[in-house]
Design a protein around this nucleic acid. Sequence first.
DNA 1: TTGAAAGCGCTAACAA
DNA 2: TTGTTAGCGCTTTCAA
Lengths: 343, 343
Amino acid sequence: MAKPQSSVRLQDVAEEAGVSIATASRSLSGTAGVSESVAERVREVAQRMGYVVNVHARSLAAGTSRSVGLVVHEIGDPYFAEIASGVLRVGTREGLTVQICHSGRDPDRELEQIRMLVANRVGAIIIAGSGFVDPALQAAAKRDLQAYRDQGGRVAVIGRHHLGVDAVLPENVKGGRAIADHLIGLGHRRIAVATGSTALTTIADRLAGVEEACAEAGISFADVPVVVAEFTREGGKLAAEEILRDHPDVTAVLSLNDDMAIGVLSVLRARGVAVPERMSVSGFDDVAVAGDLAPSLTTIRLPMVTMGELALELALKAPGNRPRRRSAGHELVVRDSTAPPPA
Amino acid sequence: MAKPQSSVRLQDVAEEAGVSIATASRSLSGTAGVSESVAERVREVAQRMGYVVNVHARSLAAGTSRSVGLVVHEIGDPYFAEIASGVLRVGTREGLTVQICHSGRDPDRELEQIRMLVANRVGAIIIAGSGFVDPALQAAAKRDLQAYRDQGGRVAVIGRHHLGVDAVLPENVKGGRAIADHLIGLGHRRIAVATGSTALTTIADRLAGVEEACAEAGISFADVPVVVAEFTREGGKLAAEEILRDHPDVTAVLSLNDDMAIGVLSVLRARGVAVPERMSVSGFDDVAVAGDLAPSLTTIRLPMVTMGELALELALKAPGNRPRRRSAGHELVVRDSTAPPPA
DNA sequence: TTGAAAGCGCTAACAA
DNA sequence: TTGTTAGCGCTTTCAA
């Protein structure tokens, strides 16, 4: 791609300003030890000549880089888009470039993207995609990240990973418990769960919370239909159809993310199943649109933007001896999609 | 940030493999002129030693870089998130790193981000945020981009800009006309428009389409209430309240993006105004959730993901003599939020 | 087919 | 406070 022909170099600026290249460098990078008058003049000349530092040259010489990498499953997914927004916010504030890559929920792709970021010598890597329940799937990534950290790279993850690094932990278990408690508290006993692949820790944890709540309420979890589909709107639709067909006595669908819940709502509406009168529906995440659906969605709010901000801040902080953990909190948001079961 | 201590260098690989650094370089970057047996051995050694090329060194030496920059208003906005998804898709396919930055609908911030990307010597820059009606606002950006292109950089924009570069053009005017035609065709005569700042070309164009349609239908555009607010859900709420208060005879709210329409729907629902029986509501963009709202939203579909893909493909193509334009198409999607006005 | 060596543009010792 | 200079790790002539 681009073959940046000779543009203005530091050399040229230095000559034009009548100073050495070192002085020019200091003036422009704001290093101390240059008289203000000279620095001022150099900056002026640079500006006039349209000088733009070559980040590659700088990074190579200085051995440091002002950039970070962010790995998400899919940036088009609002959950990750909001996390990215948080990361970008802090990044901009700190004058960092942010490289974003897709892993597509595929460990191999994830590894590939991590290698790419390492090759780019980013200063930090944030992994926002969910971890996998099976540690073996990310073993290679773990090795690479360890090597990266040994060389001074910073790493932070969002969610539960087996990567041994700083982490921002969404309260998936607590949230799962809270939303299940909410439904149970309303009087529901026949609850179905709509979920994505339980190979992901995010999902496994949410499900574990639900199971805990059921156990406490004396509901046998073995009898709770857990319908697995894509963790998307489309998956939610399929799950809803399966639930209506195979479990007609169910009075509440507990969906493990908002996206699936939206799909569930859509099918119920199409089938003329009244929400929440006949069927309650709940989500998880509280994506921006959740409050504006009809009926508005009862869900667990996860502070995605904040999680993104926290993750980058964590990564930027001097590394400690042991992995740090930041809990991101959660909040049960009760809206119109849940109510007591029909009498 | 990260101070990558001596990691494995090409040098080390070369020594270990017993070849010169030049041969090692050729073997790893797939340049012709190395016997396959040697190349194979070098690759093996590199793999074993965990060698990762230093992109900065490579870019500096080769004068080219495998990365592109994407400027959006805000990645948390689904419109831009979907565009980004398209860009990332093509980027990944082509083995390119993608840097994403926020401009926040602010020309100064946009300029700053462009400079950052230029400093990073990205091979291409995609500007996805809307242009401004006033060319002066982007004059500085235009200069910088021109210099960037003179040095071999590629640029493509999404939307109408005064930047003189390759562009993917959403059919904003046609779309505006189509959605207005739809409402007029249903029999609406008292239509209110909910919109963001008309300083943006995206919005100005959509509005122009609406005006055309009105003119053709013999509706005096001067009598059409055009309510300006933030181009967000929140802005939609404010606009809806103003419309209900000041223009009680209106039978349809034509919102210039889906986000505002969602806010409008939310207020109407809260006020007990029946949609579409008493009031029709339309959006623009067809973000993923539009079809799953209640009532589902009649809107203009813009192929955001495709637009992102097209933009990067356009930028990657060898530059022509004159700016190229790609129309991205649009589609009127009629759903449940629009109907004939009350009798 | 291979190797030697000259940079790419910049930073950071070290000297003055 | 300023300047000189040795690299940073790689690609790419040019010569062998």
